[in-house]
Design a protein around this nucleic acid. Sequence first.
DNA 1: CTCCGAAGTGCATTTTATAGCTCTTTTTTG
DNA 2: CAAAAAAGAGCTATAAAATGCACTTCGGAG
Lengths: 71, 71
Amino acid sequence: MHFGELIKTIKERREIMQVTQETLAELSGVGLRTLKQFESGKGNPTLRTLQKLADVLGMEIYLKLKNVSHR
Amino acid sequence: MHFGELIKTIKERREIMQVTQETLAELSGVGLRTLKQFESGKGNPTLRTLQKLADVLGMEIYLKLKNVSHR
DNA sequence: CTCCGAAGTGCATTTTATAGCTCTTTTTTG
DNA sequence: CAAAAAAGAGCTATAAAATGCACTTCGGAG
């Protein structure tokens, strides 16, 4: 997933859970400003920040091998 | 994946590819010091840094829903 | 044991993420 | 439409990530 997709995933998941940015910020311990910046595509969060958000959203960060089929 | 697992995954993948930290640093555009810190478990990389590494290693970052079965 | 390459660490600097406060804009709701 | 809620953005301070350089440690080869 590219940057934008990760952002989109977080944002959509938050919306599905019907949680405001403010609530997610509080629940996750991430600053509201930080979350806002991130969701509006202007951030470059640290891994820990992303994990805090993912945790609350019931998500997990994965690293997996790409499909290595060259065409 | 938790923090340590992500680190381990990167490191193992690098070793499988038989690339030194120095080479990976060059290929990915991440500073050698940054990579060293990260692999030795002392970092909290930004998403972009992690993605640069993952790219070169042929890996991808994913966000996926956890298994929500509460016991 | 010695040499050498790779990995780990201390120090210093620059850049940038985090975060709070306030204000503006957009969206939702009655 | 009007009010309220939520999201986005400017300004600013602080902490921390990114990075380079030099030095140390570790593991393997000879």
